[in-house]
Design a protein around this nucleic acid. Structure first.
Length: 437
RNA sequence: CGGGGCGUAGCGCAGUCUGGUAGCGCGUCUGCCUUGGGCGCAGAAGGUCGUCGGUUCAAAUCCGGCCGCCCCGACCA
């Protein structure tokens, strides 16, 4: 993409409404614009990040055996009366009426709808287990939206639902998602720590929140430092095998949010191994047994023809929240520092002198070469002073900056700068393309 | 939902107390200059002062209603 043609409205000053760093940077870097309290429009740069996060989530869900569907945002109130949640859910649910005065709602979650889809489509234990997910916009009419996309009213969430014949199967499904979540967040460059959690209004008895550490996190968290350095990506995962040992490995060390915190247990950890910090919840997994299948009659025929109520679990990842969460975890004084896996572009070419034919020619050639290699590249071909370009480029956080100026070019060289470390190296221009793609 | 605050140009703000020509910085546009970290000079555009009503010769300013947004707390992917 050529920056001179890109819709990328960056801001020099902090908008007054934004208090936390991720919100400020998302507005300043032209990722989003607020349209109402807790509701945001995604601009091209932000949308690319959102899609990258979505892609990683999707790849890991598919690898773990979940199947993607897409359910609507608008649901019928009757569906929720069946589970008994229509009245219970309260003011957080946005209720609307259609032209025929039918009661509808903008879905805050999809347990009811998926249970109906499952119930109508699966009749035998032979068809289990099933795990269905979708990535869809949700609306929860929060009393007080804040922190930009981290606590919006409209948000993009991956939610999925597992159906098993018995509790042992349900726990296998739970463990699969537990490991898939570890991988998903690790691939985004995040240290997400699973913490034992309350199940809240969704119900059930087994639940973990996945929390990333950040100073601006909403909840206080306490854990064993050993969890920070655990690595999941270096391992080969076989989702058909029993993943309980891996789950145990992560859950054997102490980790709790303040609501589940046990001070006595925590203080038995050697002081040098204790970590008390703040965190942002980016995922939450639940096993809730027959909480929905029972009232909604989601049953299958067992081997002896008997009717068995299925065991369910649900699993959520806040996709839009992650954009803010990643920024909270990865920024510096100059702006955002995107991990490569979610960066809107992998490489940026900074043309320091657009009206110099040699410089512009070299930039254009480099751009074409990288494009041909399918490297996502942003070319700053704008007619601006170098300082303004450097400032913008650092602000939007592209991982690699290729800086092309007349002095270096005279010697056949360009500069490659790493956004995260600030490290620069001079390279012959014809060797550059092979560094990428 | 309890408490607090704010709405004036695209962004950040002053002006409101004490009614009388709507202002500053940044950004934008034009020209010149400059070109390795938001450079300089000159000129220009851009605002029914959130909205509705009231008081007044006169309202951004005083009074009332409404709407919107933000912060702290309780609640939440």
């Amino acid at each position: 993409m050529r920056m001179s043609q890109y819709f990328l409205p960056t801001l020099k000053e902090n908008p007054a409404e934004a208090q936390i760093v991720s919100h400020r940077l998302m507005l300043r870097a032209g990722l989003v614009r607020q349209t109402s309290a807790g509701i945001y429009a995604w601009l091209p740069l932000g949308f690319r990040v959102l899609k990258n996060i979505e892609r990683i989530v999707r790849e890991e869900q598919n690898a773990a055996g979940a199947q993607e569907v897409l359910m609507p945002t608008i649901q019928s109130a009757d569906l929720w009366r069946e589970s008994g949640r229509y009245d219970a859910y309260g003011a957080e649910m946005l209720r609307i009426k259609d032209r025929h005065d039918r009661e509808m709602l903008f879905g805050p979650t999809n347990e009811e709808m998926i249970t109906v889809l499952f119930r109508d489509g699966v009749k035998s234990y032979r068809d289990l287990p099933k795990n269905l997910y979708h990535i869809q916009w949700k609306f929860r009419d929060e009393v007080r939206p804040r922190f930009g996309v981290m606590r919006g009213r409209e948000f993009l969430m991956k939610d999925n639902y597992s159906f098993d014949i018995d509790r042992a199967g349900a726990i296998r499904s739970y463990n699969n998602m537990f490991v898939a979540y570890l991988r998903t967040f690790a691939r985004m460059g995040l240290k997400a720590i699973p913490m034992r959690a309350d199940t809240g209004p969704i119900g059930g008895d087994l639940s973990h929140e996945f929390i990333i550490l950040a100073e601006t996190g909403e909840s206080a968290v306490f854990c064993h430092k050993g969890l920070i350095d655990k690595d999941i990506l270096g391992r080969t995962i076989d989702y058909a095998a029993d993943l309980q040992p891996i789950v145990n490995e992560w859950t054997s060390l102490y980790a709790a949010t303040d609501e589940k915190h046990d001070k006595d247990v925590f203080e038995k950890i050697p002081e040098s191994e204790r970590l008390a910090a703040r965190g942002i919840e980016v995922g939450h997994i639940f096993n809730f047994g027959t909480r929905y299948s029972k009232p909604m009659n989601a049953v299958v025929a067992g081997p002896g023809g008997e009717q068995i109520t299925v065991e369910m679990g649900s699993y959520g990842i806040g996709v839009s929240r992650l954009v803010g969460g990643i920024i909270e975890a990865s920024h510096d004084a100059a702006g955002i520092v995107w991990p490569e896996s979610v960066a809107p572009f992998k490489v940026a070419i900074v043309n320091l002198k657009p009206d110099d034919g040699a410089v512009s020619g070299a930039c254009a050639k480099l751009y074409d070469t990288l494009q041909a290699k399918r490297v996502e590249v942003l070319h700053d071909d704008r007619d601006l002073r170098p300082g303004a370009k450097f400032a913008d480029m650092d602000l939007i956080g592209i991982p690699w900056q290729i800086i092309v100026g007349p002095k270096g070019l005279a010697a056949g060289k360009v500069e490659l700068k790493n956004r995260r470390t600030g490290a620069r190296e001079e390279l012959p221009i014809d060797q550059l393309a092979q560094r990428f793609g």
